[in-house]
């Protein structure tokens, strides 16, 4: 056995994933494929909002969806009913997706003819924020019943998102949810965040959201 020696590494543990995410983003740009990483807590309404989004944009954009879950394929079945291409990714117990898993998912989705791929990340406000998936843009959904203080409790999630959708605004009268306070809390973490109040169930605000997404896809392809 050789002598004991110390090797200096000085390397960020996330650096490898960040590099692979950047490489994936470059490939997506070349292929003119926009990838949206959609995050939220469990039950905030990701899948319902996605079905609304596909209804609104499916006529003009070719959309594919990757549903990431620890197990089960109930979400992919719901999306497939909209006519969009959908696949289920099982993370096998992992609480998030990283750039490698996302790249593998995109291969499975067969993105050749797609304009827009949407990754529905694992429902969780902590882990997915730490791992760059290589997406063009990050979006998150905060639903009214979760409370206006979530940006204070999960600051990293709010700081990595380009757009925050505040969902289930139809139940605002029944909750102590202060929309102004929530906006202030989000903007304190991320002054650049675009905030859109929506209701996936009634369709309120979905036009504005679809407009934002349409514009981003257009900009990505230019």
């Amino acid at each position: 056995m050789g002598d004991f020696r110390i090797l200096e590494v000085k390397q960020n543990v996330f650096a490898g994933n960040d590099r692979r995410a950047e490489a994936l983003r470059r490939r997506l740009r070349e292929k003119k494929l926009f990838l949206l990483n959609l995050m939220s807590s469990p039950g905030a309404g990701k899948t319902t909002l996605l079905t609304r989004t596909i209804e609104r944009l499916g006529g003009e954009l070719k959309i594919g969806v990757m549903e990431a879950d620890i197990d089960s394929d109930v979400d992919a079945e719901r999306i497939a009913k909209t006519g969009a291409r959908a696949i289920q990714l099982h993370t096998g117990g992992m609480c998030h997706l990283d750039a490698d898993m996302t790249a593998q998912g995109l291969e499975g989705l067969e993105t050749g003819d797609l304009d827009l791929a949407i990754l529905e990340n694992v429902g969780n406000l902590v882990c997915p924020a730490e791992f760059d998936t290589g997406a063009s843009k990050n979006a998150m959904i905060l639903s009214v019943p979760e409370g206006d203080d979530k940006p204070l409790k999960y600051p990293l999630m709010f700081s990595v998102c380009d757009v925050v959708l505040i969902n289930k605004v139809d139940v605002l009268p029944y909750f102590d949810f202060d929309m102004d306070k929530c906006r202030k809390n989000i903007l304190a973490r991320n002054p650049e965040a675009k905030i859109i109040p929506v209701c996936a169930k009634t369709g309120e605000g979905v036009d504005e959201w679809a407009g934002w997404l349409r514009e981003q896809v257009k900009l990505w392809k230019e």
Partner: peptide
């Protein structure tokens, strides 16, 4: 917010 591998000891 660091998460670095500083060094490793090997033989």
């Amino acid at each position: 917010r660091e998460f670095n591998i500083k060094e490793i000891g090997v033989t």
